[in-house]
Amino acid sequence: MNRVLGIVRTHLADRWSWIIFPWLILSISFVTNLIIVKLIGDSIYSGGLASIYIYMMVIGILSVAQTFPFIIGFSVRRRDYFLGTTTTITVISALSAIVICLLGYIERKTDYWGVKLHFFNIEYLTDGPVLERLWILFVLMIHLFFLGFTISCIHRRFGRNGLFFFFIVLAIAFTISVYLITSYHKWNAIFDWFGDISVIELSSGLFICTLIYVGVSYLLLRRATV
């Protein structure tokens, strides 16, 4: 147990990357939006909240190279490294979801900061009840983190060439899908399907994806060397 905490401590020792930067980026994004909204004098539905989420994917990519060699070098099990990392991102995602939810509440109470800036309230995503809102905000973050983490694990396990091969396969798969959808005239059906999806369905789908990433990245790390 202590060893898992050691991993959490290792990640969070980098306060700048994990805590300060994401919120700093979000603040800058928020302030920029405020200025723009003042200048144009019209209401804005901002997408600025995405910045913190994209940032978390980058952290997912970076954290493997930053901490894995160090932790394995200190003779810790790969499994403990994995548990510690999962604990860290779970806690961070949960806390972030709560804070964003609270800010969204303030946003609504202050009549969108008095200038009609919709920053922490995203249409569709945060329209539902509180628990649903918390859940989607949480899942989005942990999903993006593990997406980045898994890509980085491919690199760790199979090196640069492995990562290259992975993206080639991905590109081919994507091309074939697009070709098939076009030739069977299924684009409308797909857009309809996406349009009908509920927030709960979306978040559950992303959560299942996350679980798959978790499984895959664990299998990759088990055979990774430093």
């Binding site: 980098d14 930053q66 160090f70 810790v76």
Partner: peptide, 16 residues
């Protein structure tokens, strides 16, 4: 890790 300080090494070692 890039941002690790000497004191971080000691704190983590204590847990490991």
């Amino acid at each position: 890790p890039d941002n690790f300080r000497v004191s971080d090494v000691l704190k983590v070692s204590q847990l490991i």
